[in-house]
């Protein structure tokens, strides 16, 4: 009967403070930066995230990027260790092209609605279970998101919004839309992972082009899958005063 108590003593207190910086692996690829003065073959990218804007400047679409690092070799792109990557609009994810603080108004609006309590219904719509796992891990001792007032709830009727993972397969379209409809107004949509944002590697066909085509997305959290700290940082942005 005392075993669980001794086990608890051995396991110790595991919840990490957040922020400051989480402990990221040495080879972690975070927010990519464009290094000027280098050229790269645009076709090297498996998801066509690289392109040139009208001013002939290199841009990288973080909403498409799967962080494979193939473009790094040319020197034109450098992956930093920055885990804070989420954005409030799709345009902000185009690196080398946009200002990142564009979504400030939307953020304030969402904060006004939900303040520091956020209940989310998670819908996996073709996700490979990596994004799902890294959302799930936020409920564990290490991250303990309930201390921030965030909770994944079992019913859309209890939710302030939905969190979508996966590229949205043809077979999940109806279920996704029905879940969204079941959430009471006002509500938000969070797209977690490259697939949910743009379809990622699965984009290009009739289906699997991400959630933006179907629902108004309020927060984009890129990554394949996003590191848990990237996801948590995204949530916390909504709660900043």
């Amino acid at each position: 009967m005392f075993k669980p108590f001794f086990a608890r003593l051995k396991q110790g207190y595991q919840t990490k403070t957040f922020p400051p910086e989480p402990r990221l692996p040495a080879l972690y690829r975070g927010f990519p930066e464009i290094v000027s003065g280098h050229e790269t073959d645009l076709t090297i990218c498996p998801v066509n995230a690289l392109s040139k804007n009208p001013e002939e400047k290199l841009t990288l679409d973080l909403g498409k990027c799967i962080f494979c690092g193939k473009c790094e070799k040319s020197g034109a792109i450098r992956f930093s260790r920055e885990y804070r990557q989420s954005a409030f609009s799709r345009e902000e994810l185009i690196i080398g092209d946009a200002v990142r603080e564009k979504g400030e108004n939307l953020r304030k609006e969402i904060y006004k609605l939900f303040r520091r309590s956020l209940k989310l219904r998670v819908v996996s719509a073709g996700g490979c279970n990596a994004c799902e796992a890294d959302v799930n891990v936020l409920n564990t001792l290490n991250w303990d998101i309930s201390r921030f007032g965030i909770q994944m709830v079992a019913s859309p009727k209890h939710a302030d919004g939905i969190l979508v993972t996966g590229p949205v397969t043809a077979n999940m379209k109806t279920a996704l839309l029905k879940t969204y409809d079941a959430v009471g107004d006002p509500k938000i949509v969070i797209a977690v992972g490259t697939c949910a944002i743009s379809g990622g590697i699965y984009a290009g066909g009739e289906d699997c082009n991400g959630v933006s085509d179907l629902l108004p997305v309020d927060l984009f959290i890129p990554g394949c899958p996003p590191h848990p700290s990237t996801i948590l940082d995204g949530f916390l942005k909504l709660m900043k005063t």
């Binding site: 086990a7 595991q14 692996p25 040495a26 690829r29 796992a133 409920n139 564990t140 290490n142």
Partner: peptide, 20 residues
């Protein structure tokens, strides 16, 4: 305990390649 430990194992994979 196991929820946390699973993440720690994933972090070992991340140590090898940067991705959990």
């Amino acid at each position: 305990f196991c929820g946390r430990l699973r993440g720690d194992f994933l972090n070992l994979t991340a140590m090898l390649c940067g991705n959990r």
